[in-house]
């Protein structure tokens, strides 16, 4: 990794200590941002393979609704078990849909995801006797490893729970990117013909990435559901997916920290924009995305990398002269 070994440790320390010094509402926003960053990671994963999904919200919803319904109808309360269950459900959904979708690229891939997520949205909306329709489902406070969090420390506990659940996801994606499959996915973006002429199935590479990405989307939905305490069909609406695509482009899909940085920046910006720019919020997103695509394809993370590079050069020249 270009950031070196120190970066993950520094990040862990900063995120671990953050809620101790930050006000409660900031901790809450940070929880949301961290939870959603897993979804951004899922989208970024596909983007790096040259695929964009305008329907990934369906996996977000699949995870969240599995948890919601297991709580509502199954009476389950244990967060760890529920998380496992939800991720499994989202991965299963991706494994099923992937059979059709992994055959497509580009436009068809993007729009098929969109179309199917709209079906999921419609089903969540219309089967209100199961899903609660537009009202959605309330997610009660779960127990964590059998312990019910205290009301006063709930916010803090959910933050750390989210953080702990997110770490393996980021680590898994890091492993994925350095693995043969991760490289195969980038190879698919570069040159499908050569991939097939190496005896590797492009469709299988995409399928595997799709299932992983769906599972990550599910995890993000579950964690978001826990911290917000309420889930609605809008999670599956295609513009929700579009927002995540925006954040992935914003943070920069080519790095592991990009989605996290993008997600945090986005969550805080949004909380202000709703107050001050309700009518121009989408326009701001659109203009920003255009600017990034046309002028800064590496996203926000390139700013850090640029600075780090300059820093290194500066240190080097300082050493030489000093």
């Amino acid at each position: 990794m270009r950031g070196g070994k120190a970066l993950p440790l520094v990040a862990a320390a900063v995120f671990g200590a953050a809620p101790l010094v930050l006000p409660g509402w900031v901790t809450f926003l940070l929880t949301l941002a961290v939870a959603k960053s897993v979804m951004v990671l899922a989208i970024a994963l596909l983007l790096r393979g040259g695929l964009v999904s305008f329907g990934h919200g369906m996996f977000f919803a699949a995870g969240a609704y599995t948890v919601g319904m297991a709580m509502k109808w199954g009476g389950m309360r244990e967060a760890v078990v529920l998380t496992f269950l939800g991720v499994l459900a989202a991965a299963a959904a991706a494994a099923l849909l992937g059979l059709l979708i992994a055959r497509y690229r580009g436009i068809f891939f993007a729009m098929l995801n969109m179309a199917i997520s709209m079906v999921v949205y419609a089903v969540l909306l219309k089967l209100y006797w199961v899903t609660g329709g537009t009202d959605g489902i309330g997610i009660r406070t779960p127990t964590i490893l059998g312990v019910m969090p205290e009301r006063e420390s709930l916010r803090l506990v959910m933050y750390y729970f989210t953080l702990v659940m997110t770490l393996p996801a980021f680590y898994a994606v890091h492993r994925f990117w350095t693995s043969p499959l991760g490289f195969a996915l980038r190879a698919v973006r570069d040159n499908e013909v050569r991939v097939e002429y190496m005896g590797t199935s492009v469709a299988r590479v995409i399928y595997a990435a799709y299932v992983l990405s769906g599972a990550l989307g599910g995890l993000a939905g579950i964690l978001t559901g826990f911290s917000v305490g309420h889930i609605v069909p809008d999670l599956a609406y295609w513009t929700t997916s579009g927002e995540f695509v925006f954040v992935a482009v914003l943070g920069g899909p080519a790095s592991i920290p990009g989605p996290l940085v993008g997600s945090i920046a986005f969550e805080f910006l949004k909380s202000y924009a709703y107050k001050y720019a309700a009518f121009t919020w989408q326009m701001t997103l659109g203009v920003t995305m255009l600017a990034i695509i046309l002028f800064m394809p590496g996203g926000l993370w390139t700013i850090y990398e640029g600075l780090a590079r300059q820093g290194r050069q500066w240190r080097l020249s300082w050493k030489r002269t000093g």
Partner: peptide, 28 residues
């Protein structure tokens, strides 16, 4: 015009940006 011949993903993202912009233009 600037994105002809670019990857399909880029083209999709650009027209999606346009969608976001036009939505607010109409609201304004």
């Amino acid at each position: 015009r600037p994105i002809y011949g670019r990857e399909e993903v880029v083209q999709l993202l650009v027209t999606y940006s346009l969608f976001l912009i036009l939505e607010d233009v109409m609201k304004l």
